[in-house]
Simulated scan of single mutants.
Amino acid sequence: MVGILCVLLSLTALRVEGYSSGGSLIQSQCASMDPSSVHGTMQNSPPPYTVTVNQTTYKPGDTISGESSRR
């Protein structure tokens, strides 16, 4: 019974990695704020979608409405 429980628990375990310093990859990306340093080349064309919202600030309990449209 204990063996079956151990097998079931091992099948449901998630793998999580963490770095006490935040990780060198994260630090290098945040220092330059350049996602291409991690994800390749950046998009140079205008974004294909626009998002419009009814307010630009948020307080707990507020509801923000919006819509998106394709350019």
Rank of each mutant, 00 (worst) to 15 (best):
I64V: 12
V53E: 05
T41H: 06
S68C: 03
S24V: 15
Y19E: 13
R71E: 09
E67R: 00
L14E: 05
T12G: 13
L14T: 12
L9R: 11
C30T: 12
S45E: 13
S37W: 01
P60Y: 03
L14K: 13
T50P: 03
K59N: 07
T12A: 08
R15A: 12
T12S: 11
A31D: 09
S65E: 10
M1P: 07
V38L: 12
T41A: 06
R15D: 11
S68R: 10
Y49G: 07
L25C: 13
P60C: 05
P48R: 00
D62Y: 00
G66K: 00
G66F: 05
L25G: 11
R70Q: 03
V16M: 12
V38A: 14
V16R: 15
M33T: 08
H39V: 04
S65F: 00
D34M: 07
V53N: 06
L5K: 09
G66N: 01
T50G: 07
T56I: 09
T57C: 01
G18K: 11
I26P: 01
T63K: 01
G3Y: 00
Q27E: 12
T12H: 11
T12P: 04
T50M: 06
D62A: 04
V51W: 02
V38T: 09
D62F: 00
T41V: 13
I26W: 14
G22H: 07
L25H: 13
Y58K: 01
K59W: 01
G66Q: 00
P60H: 00
G18W: 10
D34Y: 08
Y19H: 15
V38N: 09
L25S: 13
G3V: 03
P47M: 07
V2N: 08
Q43W: 04
G23Q: 04
H39G: 09
T12D: 04
P46C: 06
C6P: 05
G66E: 03
S36R: 05
Y49R: 04
V53K: 03
N54K: 02
L8F: 06
E17G: 10
Y19N: 15
T50L: 02
H39L: 15
S20F: 11
P35Q: 10
S45V: 14
V51D: 02
D34V: 07
S36W: 06
T50D: 09
I26K: 11
V38C: 15
Q43C: 10
S24Q: 15
T12V: 06
S28D: 14
T50F: 07
V16S: 12
V7C: 00
E67T: 05
L11Q: 15
A13V: 12
H39Q: 14
C6K: 13
S68A: 08
S69L: 04
G22Y: 02
S68V: 08
G18L: 09
G61P: 01
C6W: 10
I4T: 09
T52D: 05
G40K: 08
M33H: 14
S65L: 03
S21H: 12
G66I: 02
